[in-house]
Design a protein around this nucleic acid. Structure first.
Lengths: 132, 132
DNA sequence: TCTTGAACCTCTAGGGACTAGAGGGATTAT
DNA sequence: ATAATCCCTCTAGTCCCTAGAGGTTCAAGA
């Protein structure tokens, strides 16, 4: 059995965040000591690992709850969630790349000059690749 | 002079968001009508365009306030902000790409099978490219 | 066994960037 | 004049935590 601090160091999830996840219904400490401190089993630790990983991958708490409660018995649904999220991520990458290109343009427009136009570049939409 | 609604349609910034920006000290309506409604000048409109663009580019409200107050007279500072932000964006792109690769792995690991392992894939860190 | 100090507990509030709703007043077009 | 639309302020909610206050429990050393 692990204390919340041990779980925290093993999973990399901060202590208050673990308590927050409990509050949100993602996890629950299997036991409490006489003095009301949480004790987690190996299973609880792995569940938290899963949550951590899924959060790193950008899934929302709701999505994760969904995966944890509905999906274990339903691969099609799990698959759908993963695929939908992949689409989202690809979209975000595309948008960030446009953003990168524009920042380069803004930065370069003023490199090596005494006078630059970062401000007007920020205000100028005409060269934007994508429409806002 | 433009009403808040006209400014909203021209800039694409929603009405409550414009009021929020005012509250945050990014903009201020130049005038008010007898009946206390905001009226914006062309300048105000352009300032909001700038803010909209900078927000699209991912700059925080604080950064934008900084740009609007300190930077106009200080190109070096503006340049620094743009360059620092570019670094951030590149970092985000790199992380998202790792994420994308992993989502593909997770999805493919279960494509076309009757039984899949999305859940265990989410829980499995061993194949992560980057360390969490 | 006692004591110290680290770790734990609950509860409330804050943060960032909005968004939504209530309850009302102003403006504009017919 | 009246209806429709727009606008006002204020409060509270969203998401995912993070920080702090004020107090209790645990583990290890003397």
């Amino acid at each position: 059995m692990f204390s919340i601090g041990q779980v925290s160091t093993r999973t990399g999830v901060k202590v208050p965040t673990i308590r927050y996840y409990e509050q949100m219904g993602l996890i629950a400490a299997e036991e409490r000591t006489e003095g009301n401190q949480r004790r987690f089993s190996q299973d609880g630790l792995e569940r938290l690992h899963f949550i951590r990983h899924a959060r790193d991958l950008g899934l929302s708490i709701d999505m994760i709850r969904h995966l944890l409660t509905i999906a274990p018995s339903n691969h099609a649904e799990s698959h759908r969630i993963a695929a939908a999220h992949l689409d989202e991520v690809r979209d975000r990458i595309a948008r960030l790349k446009r953003l990168e290109a524009e920042l380069v343009r803004i930065k370069d427009s003023c490199d090596g000059k005494d006078e630059c136009s970062v401000l007007s570049a920020f205000g100028d939409h005409t060269q934007c690749a994508g429409g806002h």
